[in-house]
């Protein structure tokens, strides 16, 4: 399982990086933390001519918190997020969801940009980007462009990045302090990819009803998606146990799942419903129902 024959270069600037991407015409791969790319190379699922190491490009690993929201440089690692005390209030959902990403050693190297570019349908970060309406900032030969989070990931391991482009940052919209949220994930073991997860948040209107609910799920084969049917159900409702039970049922119904070796489609649908239920319970501050024997 040795890497295929490949060259390596470490450019010093973003512009050099873009120039290299242009010069190699799609036969180069960017590497930063390498936590998704390196296993694919070890299995020789990819054979790029060259790896362009962007891990030391300046200015791409900052976490900026401002009135407009949270901006993560593409080279921000999971551990950077974990250690950033202010993020826990500035974007508590982000901090909580990231706690599920992989293991200690991988968290030290893995980057948000790498995760998003890799776009594994079972990984947390693309689901956050999709559900939170984050913007993805991309640089290429044509300069900078901003891609809406929901339009960035096209399918499993497929993004809207052009061969001459790289992700430089992700911008999450501002997070109101009173926002209700929940994140629930189910994996075989600690740190494994999610079999199903639910990313939920909503604001409360003056009457204590859910406003602008966002319900994202992991569990569909191509990518994380938002479930409009559940969001429609919750809009303008007081989130109580009955509504949550309904949301679970509708979510289970709406999710499009398929079989993989560890997860039959039918089971995964049910699991998605359960994750939605549990995430909404957390968001609403409700205890999971203790049931007497």
């Amino acid at each position: 399982m040795k890497l295929p024959d490949l060259d390596y270069i470490r450019p010093g600037t973003l512009q050099e990086t873009i120039d290299l991407l242009v010069a190699y015409e799609g036969e180069a791969k960017l590497v930063a933390g390498g936590q998704s790319l390196m296993p694919m190379l070890a299995f020789r699922l990819l054979a790029p001519k060259i790896l362009i190491d962007i891990s030391r490009l300046p200015g791409l690993n900052a976490i900026d918190i401002g009135p407009d929201g949270v901006r993560l440089g593409a080279l921000t690692t999971w551990r950077d997020i974990e250690r950033h005390a202010a993020l826990k209030t500035a974007h508590p959902l982000l901090a909580a969801a990231i706690a599920h990403v992989a293991h200690y050693q991988i968290r030290n190297r893995g980057t948000v940009g790498g995760s998003l570019a890799h776009s594994d349908p079972a990984s947390e970060f693309p689901a956050l980007v999709t559900t939170c309406d984050a913007d993805v900032v991309v640089h290429g030969a044509g300069g900078e462009r901003v891609v809406k989070g929901s339009e960035f990931v096209l399918g499993a391991m497929t993004t809207s990045l052009e061969p001459d482009e790289m992700i430089t940052g992700i911008r999450f919209p501002a997070w109101p302090a009173a926002r209700r949220w929940g994140f629930e994930e189910f994996a075989r073991r600690r740190g494994d990819f999610a079999m199903a997860a639910a990313v939920v948040f909503y604001d409360l209107d003056a009457g204590g009803r859910a406003a602008d609910p966002h319900i994202g799920i992991i569990g569909e084969p191509e990518r994380a998606v938002r479930l409009a049917a559940v969001e429609d159900l919750l809009t303008g409702r007081v989130i109580d146990r009955d509504v949550i039970a309904e949301a679970r049922a509708i979510g289970e119904q709406a999710a499009q799942t398929s079989d993989d070796i560890h997860t039959p489609a039918k089971y995964r649908k049910a699991l998605i419903g359960t994750m939605i239920e549990r995430a909404l319970m957390t968001a609403a501050g409700l205890e999971l129902r203790p049931v007497a024997a």
Partner: peptide, 14 residues
């Protein structure tokens, strides 16, 4: 930092 050394290129350790 603890790192998996099979997931890092040797040149990256420069």
């Amino acid at each position: 930092e603890a790192v998996r050394s099979c997931l890092m290129l040797a040149p990256q350790a420069d």
